[in-house]
């Protein structure tokens, strides 16, 4: 035990300065943000749309809720595609209207902030595990979500927020409904990752349902998977904690 503590002390403070200052390059690799598209002639533009495996592109617009950062569109015409170096549109833009049962906008700000601390329960409804592990990463010393009053709870009965990860598969519909019912009110859902928001790459999966079919506000957190700082930002927004200085919108 003493050895562990000595080791931890030697390593010093690892915790990110986010949200007090903007995330660093290491915390937000380029693929954490949306690609940037330049205008193309109509024909080429249609080709680029067809290349996107999630159908997220419309002209130069990208539906943030669908995009899985696969870089296909970037390959399509490196010369005519804007820089994709992390300077693109904010990563936590909500999904655009796409007529697939995905809400067009973010829900209004949370009506009654949960004091200064919240308890979150993560539920996997069909993920590839990357989203799960990014959520779990919030408790590592680099992000240390508990310093911001965000705590994981092992049971939905004590949870304020439900983090949903993965494509909602038919088999998980009933367990999801029961989990949501078990939560006390008020409650909200955070849809983590493209899968949970729009189905992402799996949007044609038979029997897929959507998290916003429940009468509970949903916060969309795009990415595939979103980076831990983005999850932190979304959780803070979910509880109505105003943006800190330097925190990107």
């Amino acid at each position: 035990m003493a050895g562990w503590i000595l080791q931890a002390w030697r390593r010093g403070r690892l915790t990110t300065r986010f949200p007090r200052s903007a995330p660093t390059e290491a915390e937000l690799p380029p693929t954490a943000r949306l690609p940037v598209l330049s205008p193309l002639p109509a024909e080429a533009s249609r080709l680029r749309e067809a290349l996107c495996p999630t159908g997220a592109i419309e002209g130069t617009d990208i539906d943030g809720g669908r995009c899985v950062r696969c870089a296909r569109c970037h390959i399509a015409g490196a010369a005519v595609t804007g820089p994709w170096d992390g300077s693109g549109p904010p990563p936590d833009r909500g999904p655009g209207p796409d007529g697939e049962g995905v809400g067009a906008q973010l829900p209004p700000p949370w009506p009654a902030p949960f004091g200064r601390s919240i308890h979150v329960f993560p539920i996997d409804v069909g993920s590839c595990q990357a989203c799960n592990l990014e959520v779990l990463a919030l408790s590592n010393p680099y992000y240390d979500a508990s310093r911001l009053g965000i705590f994981f709870t092992p049971t939905p009965r004590h949870a304020d927020l439900l983090l949903v990860m993965g494509v909602p598969t038919a088999a998980m519909e009933e367990p999801f409904r029961r989990t949501l019912e078990a939560m006390p009110s008020p409650k909200a859902i955070v849809a983590v990752g493209a899968c949970a928001i729009s189905g992402g790459l799996f949007r044609h999966l038979p029997g897929r349902w959507t998290v916003d079919s429940a009468p509970v506000p949903v916060i969309y957190l795009p990415g595939c998977p979103p980076a831990p700082v983005q999850i932190l930002a979304a959780l803070r927004r979910a509880v109505g904690i105003p943006r800190a200085e330097g925190e990107r919108p």
Partner: peptide
Amino acid sequence: GPVTFGLFEA
């Protein structure tokens, strides 16, 4: 399961 905190998977 399928909803557990411990397995962290469905």
